[in-house]
Design a protein around this nucleic acid. Structure first.
Lengths: 135, 135
DNA sequence: CTGTGTGCAAACACTTTGCAGGTGT
DNA sequence: ACACCTGCAAAGTGTTTGCACACAG
């Protein structure tokens, strides 16, 4: 599945900026920030276009936002449709990479009575395998 | 335990802005944003002083940041010292209130091999008891 | 008295909005 | 051809920095 196919499947126009964003996310196979996505081609598209494209892709459930503890935002492809609350993010504090984890085994939190929970997000922080090996 | 005692215990000067922030958080018993804290007395302290005070309180582990999905930041008192990863936040989508939950029963996520996890944050979204009652 | 907290001005980063012109279908 | 995407300019919001003065200890 490449960028053009993904866009076509969602009835979105196949424009340069969108293709580029999806392409970078497909390559990187982890969540990237706006500046990380642009790193490859810093001046190809302006920031405004980027933001609007990211918004469109998010609204069409092609990507999703990941907000880290320092408030920075990264974007990741929705590889497949996951049920709500079955999705965790791992943030490596060494290399800053963010990876999506399918956590089917994620046990439910003990919710105090009276609260009804619609979604649950889990953010893990630590060291990823690559960084552990190096040091 | 009131604001002055808390500050004294951390060897911090007992200044107006700090006392005010801690006081509001003690009253509110849930996480508040900078603007929510200031709501009571909008013009008493300027924003810069607020940010610096919040930073100081955070550095001294008197409060902690909660980052929501829309990237807004709220602050909550550290009621007691909790072990890492045993702390969840509940964000009510009706009234926007954020409450801290002690979740001793929080089961560990199934972590893929090779990742070492230092901390785990859980953000729940849904409806709080108060809003559920109102319909 | 001394160090640090405060207020103001200004800078900075991130994101959104409006509009004119260009592009995909 | 038409809708919609893009680029630019500008504004809005949240946060940080520098500096002079005020205040807590």
């Amino acid at each position: 599945m490449d960028a053009e196919q993904i866009l076509k499947r969602h009835n979105l126009k196949n424009t340069g900026c969108r293709k580029f964003i999806i392409g970078e996310l497909l390559d990187g196979d982890c969540a990237l920030s706006e500046s990380e996505i642009k790193k490859a081609l810093p001046d190809l598209f302006d920031r405004v276009t980027f933001y609007r494209s990211l918004k469109t892709l998010e609204e069409n459930s092609i990507i999703h936002r990941v907000v880290l503890h320092d408030s920075t935002v990264k974007y990741a492809l929705n590889r497949e449709v996951l049920p709500k609350g079955e999705h965790a993010h791992f943030h490596c504090m060494e290399c800053d990479a963010v990876t999506c984890m399918e956590t089917g085994a994620l046990a439910p939190v003990a919710i105090p009575q009276g609260f009804s929970v619609d979604s649950m997000d889990v953010l893990l922080e630590g060291t990823c395998p690559g960084c552990k090996r190096q040091g």
